[in-house]
Design a protein around this nucleic acid. Sequence first.
DNA 1: GACATATTTAGCTATTTAGCTAAATAGCTT
DNA 2: AAGCTATTTAGCTAAATAGCTAAATATGTC
Lengths: 106, 106
Amino acid sequence: MSAPLVHQLKRQARLFKALAHPGRLLIVQELSRGERCVCELTSLLGVQMPTVSRHLALLRDTGIVEDEKRGTQVFYRLRSPCVLNVFECLDALEHAPSRKELSHAA
Amino acid sequence: MSAPLVHQLKRQARLFKALAHPGRLLIVQELSRGERCVCELTSLLGVQMPTVSRHLALLRDTGIVEDEKRGTQVFYRLRSPCVLNVFECLDALEHAPSRKELSHAA
DNA sequence: GACATATTTAGCTATTTAGCTAAATAGCTT
DNA sequence: AAGCTATTTAGCTAAATAGCTAAATATGTC
């Protein structure tokens, strides 16, 4: 297995992992409606602010969101609305019939 | 936050989590070329068979792959080729310029 | 039925993750 | 500069994950 392939797999896995948490998915979903400050997201998620801050740091490190400090607040927004496509893909996956089901169908 | 929403978020997160591992991504990529038995995937991944078996069980439980026993071997295949779209989405995400970069551009 | 092969399950350990609280940082306002 | 608010960082604990080895299960062959 080639080194570049391994590297690419790790990078992709890192992206998936960043999205593999209900709270972070909710953040992404909320940010798809526009930028939000940490405090807004905190009340949305219903966990402590430090926890949200760490979730956001993770999303930032993987390039999914970017932040901008304005005064005392920090606003986060999606770096590319393209992330939302991923949800569509997964929804499609979820509702797709299996090949087994297909082969059993009349 | 409504209960159905929470439920949906958890389900989506579970799907992402299943894909959030380099070895499992490699499995998915390999299965996109056709069905494979556990032993083939084991030599591909370069880890012990029990480990691969557990990865496959996880992918099966989330509905990403399905298995079929033939004789002494078990063959796995993608339940829907749609998963591959997710990769395209993520690649697109990775190469998308940030809004910051866009606003700084001439 | 004994034996060999393919796969899964169990049980263990090391690492990672998610939440918390407390403390540190940074920017306002007075 | 003192105090207030928003955010991040550090340090901790509990739970989840990934790998291993050994044992169990299932199928096919002699």
